[in-house]
Simulated assay, not measured.
Amino acid sequence: MFTVDSISIRYEQKSVIRDFSFSVNQGEVVSIIGPNGSGKSTLLKGISRNVPFHSGQVELEGTNIKSLSSKQVARKMCMLSQKNQAPSDMTVIDLVSYGRYPHKKWFEKLNQEDMDIVHWALEKTHLTSHKDRTVSSMSGGESQRAWIAMALAQRPKILLLDEPTTYLDISHQYEVLELVRELNQETGMTVLMVLHDLNHAASYSDNIIVVQAGEKAMSGKPNEVMTTDMIRRIYRMDSEIQYVATEKKPRIHLLSTAR
Rank of each mutant, 00 (worst) to 15 (best):
M1S: 14
T3H: 01
T3R: 11
D5H: 07
I7W: 01
I7H: 02
I9P: 09
S15P: 09
F22N: 01
Q26L: 07
Q26Y: 03
G27T: 11
P35G: 03
N36S: 11
N36P: 07
S38L: 09
T42W: 00
G46M: 04
I47T: 09
V51G: 00
F53P: 00
H54L: 09
H54E: 15
H54V: 03
S55A: 09
E61Q: 10
G62C: 05
K66Q: 09
K66G: 03
K66E: 11
L68W: 03
K71Q: 14
A74M: 02
A74H: 05
M77A: 04
K83T: 12
N84D: 13
Q85L: 05
P87H: 10
I93M: 05
L95R: 03
V96M: 05
V96S: 07
G99N: 07
Y101T: 14
Y101K: 05
K104F: 04
F107N: 08
F107L: 12
D114I: 01
D114F: 00
D116L: 00
V118K: 06
W120L: 14
K124N: 15
H126G: 02
D132N: 15
D132P: 01
R133N: 13
S136Y: 05
G140R: 08
G141W: 05
A149Q: 11
L152H: 12
R155Y: 02
P156A: 13
L160C: 06
L160Y: 05
D162M: 08
D162P: 14
P164A: 10
P164W: 14
P164N: 10
S171Y: 10
S171T: 06
Q173Y: 13
Q173I: 07
E175H: 07
E178F: 01
V180G: 04
V180S: 00
L183F: 08
N184M: 04
N184A: 04
Q185N: 12
E186P: 02
E186Q: 15
G188V: 12
M189G: 07
L192V: 15
M193G: 01
L195C: 06
D197V: 01
S203Y: 11
Y204I: 13
S205C: 11
S205H: 09
I208N: 03
I208Y: 01
I209H: 06
I209Q: 00
A213L: 03
G214L: 09
K216F: 04
K216Q: 12
G220N: 12
P222H: 13
N223M: 10
N223V: 03
M226C: 12
T227G: 06
D229K: 15
I231Y: 07
R232G: 05
R233T: 15
I234T: 05
S239E: 06
V244W: 02
V244P: 00
K249H: 07
P250W: 13
R251A: 12
L255Q: 14
A258T: 14
